[in-house]
Structure formats: C-alpha cells, structure tokens
Amino acid sequence: MSTGRSNYYPPRAGRRIIFRPISFRFRRWLEYSPFEIGSSALSVPAILWSAIIPGYIFRVIGQQRIFLLVLGGYLFALLVFLGWLGYPLASIAYMAMLSLHVTSIAQLIKHLTPSCGLKFRIISTVTAFLLLNVFVYGFVQGQLGRLLNPLRINDEVVVVRVCSWQTVKVGETIAYRIAGGDKNGFVVVDGFGLDQVRAKGGDVVRFSKNSYQVNSTVFTRESYMPTTGEMIVPKGRWFVWPKFSINQTLPEAEISKRTMLYAIIGTDDLVGKPCRYWFWRKQL
C-alpha cells in the first residue's frame, strides 16, 4: 500500500465565502418571501415587475387574458407612438401608454391595500399618474429628444437624427433652422429647412446661366440660383440652396438675391440629418 502524499489540495475558501450566505439569503427572500399589506401577499419581484411592466399584476393574480390584452395594447400604442412620431396620433398613443401603465399600478395598489377606501385609491392613482408622467415617461421623452427630432417641414413630419456639425459632409441632406423675417419685402416664416449641402467652409462657388461650380466640380443650376458671380463659403459654415414656396411675383434675379440671404447655414442652425427611412415611411 502506497503511503506517499497526494499532490491534490482542495481549493481554499476565499474571503468572499463570508458574504455568500448573506447574498444567498437575500435572493431567497426576494424570490420567496411575501410582502404583506392587509390580507394580500406578493413577493418583492412580483411587486417590482407589476410596477414596471404594464398589466403584469393581472398575470400575478391569475387573470392571464387581461394581462395579455393590456400588454398587447401597450405595445401597439408604443409602435404607433414611434411610427407616427411628431403627428397628433403619437400624442394619443402616448396618453394610451401612460393610461394603461397607471391602470396597472392602480390595480397593484388595490391588491396590496384591499381595506383602503375609494378616496385613497383616487389619490394614489393620481399620484402614480403624475410620477410616471414626470419622472418616467418625461425622462424617456427627454432622452429621446436628445437623439431624434420630429420636424414639420412643408406639411410633413420628418424624423431627424441629432448630430454634431463635424459629421456633416458635402452632398448630405441636413435639417436646419430658418429664422423668419422681412428682408426688403421678402417675407420668410420661421421654420425648418431640409436641403442638400452644396459646399463647405472655404469652398469657392461660381454661378453661371445653366450651372454652378464648386471649386472644380460643375453641377446643374437649381431654380432661382444666381446666373453670375462667385462666393467663398465662410469657415465653419455650409452652402445650401433653400427650396422656398414663393407666393410673390418678383423678377427671378430679385428672388435669387434674397434667397442667397438664407443659403449660408451656421453650426447653430444645424438640427441634424434626416433618417432615410423611419419604420415603414420613406423620408428621403
């Protein structure tokens, strides 16, 4: 019989082993310990999911069909809200989402506090509505606004991705602000433009009767562009050619002269780049 020493040593318990029983018990408590108010008992995860997921409380109390209806309605409203972002229909969908979520939380409160009266439930429901609207949905809308902007341009809504001016390149279409005003009888309404960048800062633009030239590249002349002259685009700016709906009877040369006042776009005017497609809608 061999009396040699074994080379195998079982792994020693590290310092973390001290905290494992505590974390294990906490997880067990979260999953299995009921949270009791009145005669109702729900686990902590059930309460959390019921507060987060619209309609989940109905699944917890065994009303699976209502849960599916509420959740399905919420997801449909979310799709409508995103798909028609910027249209009045999106506002209706937003209120539908908020209402379904508040209804779910009201049901949760009712289940946790069955002995409380109608006055308490009304106050708690209104409070839930205000808190959700300001701190949850309002926050999400604010974050969404930092990424996307729905702009109304020529009776249509175009969803625009917010971008920095350093990413703008010649040939891309940009959305920009138009400061309205009356310039020598040429009245322009405040709004937004959606046009292609023709030249960047430092480029030389020359105009002729049938074309315009950016540095050494020749392009077909756009409507109402000047037929003579040249310009150097200032640094940090872009040259676009706005497509105005002109309702005044003026000579073409006069329209060209006044449109040029709005053809130079600065970094402060930039809104972003329009999405080529927004869900099923083609924008460009």
Results as ranks from 00 to 15, higher is better:
Val188Phe: 03
Gln107Cys: 10
Gly171His: 06
Arg65Thr: 09
Gly142Arg: 07
Leu71Asp: 00
Gly185Phe: 05
Phe19Tyr: 11
Pro274Ala: 08
Ala13Pro: 04
Asn215Cys: 08
Arg221Pro: 03
Thr220Val: 07
Tyr137Met: 06
Phe219Trp: 09
Thr228Arg: 13
Tyr8Arg: 14
Phe76Gly: 09
Phe24Leu: 12
Cys163His: 15
Tyr262Glu: 14
Leu48Phe: 10
Ser104Val: 01
Lys110Gln: 11
Ser256Leu: 04
Leu151Asn: 02
Ser40Asn: 06
Ser23Val: 14
Asn154Met: 10
Tyr8Ile: 15
Val218Ser: 08
Met97Phe: 00
Gly14His: 09
Leu68Met: 13
Val140Asn: 01
Ile22Trp: 07
Ile123Phe: 09
Phe67Asn: 05
Tyr74His: 15
Met1Trp: 15
Leu68Phe: 10
Met1Tyr: 15
Ser50Leu: 03
Val159Glu: 03
Tyr56Arg: 05
Gln283Ser: 09
Lys243His: 08
Leu85Tyr: 05
Asn184Val: 12
Phe35Met: 14
Cys163Pro: 02
Tyr262Trp: 10
Asn149Trp: 08
Ala46Thr: 12
Arg221Leu: 09
Phe139Val: 01
Leu75Asp: 04
Ser2Asn: 10
Val136Glu: 00
Val197Pro: 00
Pro88Lys: 07
Val197Met: 04
Val126Arg: 01
Leu75Tyr: 03
Arg59Ile: 12
His111Tyr: 13
Ile47Val: 12
Gly272Leu: 02
Cys116His: 15
Val188Asp: 04
Trp49Phe: 13
Ala77Val: 02
Phe135Tyr: 08
Phe120Pro: 06
Gly272Glu: 01
Ser104His: 00
Lys243Val: 07
Gly38Cys: 06
Ser256His: 04
Thr167Lys: 09
Trp49Tyr: 10
Phe24Gly: 05
Leu147Ser: 07
Ser104Cys: 01
Ile22Arg: 05
Ser91Leu: 09
Ser91Glu: 11
Phe24Pro: 00
Phe219Asp: 10
Ala77Glu: 00
Gly62Val: 07
Ile255Asp: 04
Phe192Met: 06
Arg25Trp: 15
Val188Cys: 06
Leu147Gln: 09
Thr3Ser: 15
Val140Ser: 02
Gln196Pro: 03
